[in-house]
C-alpha cells in the first residue's frame, strides 16, 4: 500500500502535467477542482499498467504541442498586423529585413491562418498584403458585387475583354490589384496541412518567395537557360545520329534534357509540387518483360465430344428440347 501510495504521488504530477498546463493556460480556476476528482481513478489504473500512462502522456504532449503552435500563430498574426515597419515602405520592393521577417513568420501558417491575418489587417484599415503600408480601398456605392474588366484581348477567343463578377468584400481587402496578386501568390505557397502534421522532409511551405522574387527568378532563368539548352539539344541530336546504337540510358538522358525538364518543372510548380523528390515521378515504374511465353508446339483446336451441339458452358451441358 505504501509503495503504491508513493507510486501514485510520483506518477500524478507527470501524468497530469501536460493536461494541467493546458488547463491553466486556458482557464486556471475551474480546473483544479475537477482534475483532483479525476486523478484518483486514473492514477490507480496507471499504476497497474504503465502503458496507459505512456499513451496518455503521448497524447497529452501532442495536444500541448498543437496548442503551443496555435498560440505561436496567433502571436505572429498580431505581429504581422503592424507590418511593414516603416509607413513609407513600397510593397513592390520591400526592405530586405521586412521581407525576410515576413516570410519567416509565415512558415507555420495554413491558408486559413493567412486569411485571418488578412481579415485582421483589414479591420485595422490596412491593405491585406503584409508588406503594404497603404490603406485598403473602400468602395463608395453599396452594391454587393463589382464587374471587373480584364485587359484588351483577354476575352474568349482572344477577342474583347474578360469580365469577372467579384464580391465587393474581396475587392476591398486590398489597396490595389497588384497587392492582391502579391498576397495571393504567397497564399498558394502555404502548406494545407497544419504544422504539427507536416513531415520534416516536406519542402512545401518551407521556403516562400514573394511575387517580385518569383518573377525575377523566372526571368533570370529564362535568360540563363534558353541559349545553352538550345545548344545542348542540338548537341544531343548530333550524338543521337552519330552513335550507332544509342543505349536506353543515354536516350533517356537526352530526352529529359531535350524538353521534358522545363515543362515538368513548370507543371510541378502549377500543381504545387516543389518537393524535388517528387519531380522524378511519384512511383518507380519497373518493367519486367517475360520472354518466350509461347511454347513451340502450337496446334490447331480440335473437336471434342459434344462440341457439335455447342459444347458445355463451364461444365453445364445445355439440354435439348
Amino acid at each position: 500500500m505504501s509503495a503504491n501510495q508513493s507510486n501514485l504521488k510520483t506518477s500524478l504530477p507527470s501524468a497530469h502535467a501536460a493536461s494541467n498546463q493546458v488547463a491553466s493556460q486556458r482557464r486556471a480556476p475551474p480546473k483544479p477542482a475537477m482534475s483532483r476528482q479525476q486523478k484518483k481513478p486514473s492514477s490507480s489504473k496507471s499504476a497497474s499498467d504503465p502503458r496507459h500512462l505512456a499513451i496518455a502522456l503521448h497524447h497529452a504532449h501532442r495536444i500541448q504541442a498543437q496548442k503551443d503552435t496555435e498560440a505561436l500563430i496567433l502571436d505572429r498574426i498580431l505581429d504581422l498586423v503592424t507590418y511593414p515597419t516603416s509607413p513609407s515602405a513600397d510593397p513592390a520592393s520591400p526592405s530586405a529585413q521586412d521581407a525576410q521577417a515576413f516570410k519567416a513568420a509565415l512558415l507555420p501558417f495554413q491558408p486559413a491562418d493567412y486569411d485571418n491575418l488578412i481579415l485582421e489587417r483589414n479591420i485595422e484599415g490596412l491593405c491585406g498584403y503584409g508588406l503594404c503600408p497603404r490603406e485598403h480601398r473602400k468602395e463608395d456605392s453599396h452594391g454587393t458585387f463589382r464587374i471587373k474588366w480584364g485587359s484588351k484581348g483577354s476575352g474568349p477567343g482572344g477577342r474583347g475583354r474578360e469580365m469577372n463578377i467579384v464580391p465587393r468584400e474581396k475587392l476591398e481587402m486590398w489597396c490595389s490589384d497588384e497587392c492582391a496578386e502579391r498576397a495571393l501568390y504567397i497564399r498558394v505557397q502555404l502548406a494545407e496541412e497544419p504544422v504539427w502534421e507536416r513531415r520534416a522532409d516536406d519542402m512545401r511551405g518551407k521556403s516562400l518567395i514573394l511575387l517580385e522574387e518569383g518573377r525575377a527568378n523566372q526571368q533570370g532563368k529564362d535568360k540563363m537557360r534558353s541559349p545553352p539548352s538550345l545548344r545542348e539539344v542540338t548537341g544531343q541530336l548530333d550524338n543521337l545520329h552519330m552513335e550507332n546504337a544509342p543505349g536506353p540510358s543515354n536516350l533517356e538522358g537526352g530526352m529529359s534534357r531535350l524538353s521534358v525538364r522545363d515543362n515538368s518543372r513548370d507543371l510541378a510548380m502549377e500543381r504545387g509540387d516543389s518537393n524535388p523528390a517528387l519531380q522524378t515521378g511519384r512511383v518507380q515504374v519497373q518493367i519486367q518483360e517475360n520472354d518466350n511465353l509461347m511454347s513451340d508446339n502450337v496446334t490447331a483446336p480440335e473437336m471434342r465430344p459434344g462440341d457439335d451441339k455447342g459444347g458445355s458452358i463451364e461444365g453445364y451441358v445445355p439440354q435439348e428440347f
Partner: peptide, 14 residues
Amino acid sequence: SPSAVRLLSGVPGR
C-alpha cells in the same frame, strides 16, 4: 474575427 476569439479565450487565469 477568429483570431480575436482565440485571443479572448486565451487569458490565463481569467
